[in-house]
Simulated assay, not measured.
Amino acid sequence: MTHHLVPSDALIATRRAVLRGAAAVGAGTLAAWAGGTRAAAASHHRTGTVHVVSRHTGPYEVMALLDAHGTFPLPRQEAFPDATDADWVRAERLDPAAFGADGTWELDFRCYAVRRPGGRVTLVDTGIGAAGSPASDWAPVPGRLPSVLQHAGIGRDDVDTVVLTHLHEDHFGWTVDPSGTPMFPGARHVVQRAEIAALDADDSAMSYVVEPLRRAGLLHPVDGRTKVQGRPGCAAVTAVPTPGHTPGHQSVLVDGGGRDGIVITGDVLVHAVQLAAPDVAYRLEDDRATARRTRWALLSEARTRHHVLATAHLNRPFVSP
C-alpha cells in the first residue's frame, strides 16, 4: 500500500512529524498466541513471503522474523538525498525488491530471535505493533510478530530477554499490548540508558514503552557494550553501542565462538544504498555524521571478522558486508 507525503525541511527535527502525513492502514487484533483472536489483515504482506528465515552460529539459532512489509512514505531520493545515480545502481543489485515504481522505497519490518540450547530466546526489537500502536501514523499496521513467533515455536514465556536497538516506533510496537501490558512478562528489556535519556517527555516511546516497562520492573537500562547472554571467552550475545541513527542506538553481536558471527544491525543501515555507499546519509538520522562513522566502523569490523549482517529493513534478512 502506498502512502503519500509532502515533506518539509521544517519537519526534519521531529521524525514522527515527517512520517505522520501517511494515514494509518490496516486493522486487526492480537493473534491467538497473545490471547486474542487474529483477524485477516494480509494486504500489506507480499504473497508467498517466507516469514521466518534462520541461520546458525555456534550454539545459537538466529531467526529473522518478518513483522510486515510496506511502502515507505518518503520517495527513496527524498529519504537519501545525497545518493547518486551510481549509488542507486549498486544498491539495486544488492536489494532489487527495495525499488518500487515511481521512485518508491519498498521495505521489510523485521525483528530477530536468538534461540540458544534449551529453547530460551533473546528477542531483538518488536516491530510495528498492533493497530493503534504509535507506528500506526505511517507504518502498515497491524504487524504479525505474535503469529510469526508462534510459527517459529516461540512462546512468550520462552523469551527471557528483549533487546530494543532503539526507541523508534517501528522497533518497539509489540513490546506491550494495546492495554499497555508487557507482552513478554518474564523478560528483562535491555535499552541503552543514553537512548532513554534522549527522549522528550511527550515522546510516544516514553508513555508507550518506557513507563509501562518501568512500572512492571522489566526495564533494564545499560551503559555501553553489554554482554546479554554467555560467559567471558565463550559464545555470547552482546549489545554494542552504534549511535547516530539515535543517540543510544545499539546493535547486537551474536558470536558463536568462531568466524561466522552475526551482527543484528538495527537501523545502522536502513536501505541497500547505505551498504553500497556507506557515506550516504538517511534523512531521518538523528546525527548524520555520527551515523556515517558508525556505519563505516560496523561494516569494517564485520568484513574483517567475516560476520554476516542481519538487517531490519532490507528485503533480504541476512547479507554479507
Rank of each mutant, 00 (worst) to 15 (best):
A297Q: 10
R215N: 09
V240I: 13
G244H: 04
I196K: 13
W296D: 08
A239S: 06
P241Q: 06
D279R: 05
R305S: 14
D287A: 14
A205V: 09
T238C: 04
P212S: 09
P241Y: 04
S251H: 01
T311E: 15
E211Y: 05
S204V: 12
L275H: 04
V240D: 07
A277E: 03
R305P: 03
A205W: 11
G233L: 12
P278F: 01
R288T: 15
V209H: 12
W296N: 06
G261K: 06
V273G: 10
H249F: 12
V308Y: 00
A281R: 11
D287N: 14
K227S: 05
D286A: 09
G244S: 09
H220F: 01
D202T: 14
D223T: 00
D260Q: 08
V228H: 04
V222R: 02
Y208M: 05
A239I: 00
Q274E: 14
S204C: 05
A197G: 11
I264R: 01
R295W: 04
V270T: 14
A201P: 11
A272H: 04
A239W: 01
L309Q: 08
H220S: 04
V270M: 09
S207Q: 14
G217N: 10
A197W: 01
P241I: 05
T304I: 10
H249E: 10
G217K: 13
A289D: 15
H245A: 14
V222M: 03
A235E: 12
I264E: 04
H249L: 13
A289T: 15
V280I: 06
A235Y: 11
A277G: 00
Q250T: 00
I262R: 00
A302E: 07
T246W: 03
S207H: 13
L213N: 12
P221D: 05
H249M: 07
I196R: 13
V280Q: 05
H307F: 12
G248V: 00
G266T: 13
V240C: 10
T311I: 15
D202W: 11
P232A: 11
G233P: 12
S204Y: 12
G258R: 09
G244M: 08
H249I: 11
Y282H: 15
A289M: 14
P278T: 05
D255S: 10
D279K: 01
P212N: 10
A198Q: 06
Q229D: 06
P241M: 10
T311H: 11
E285R: 04
S204T: 13
G257M: 08
A197D: 15
M206G: 12
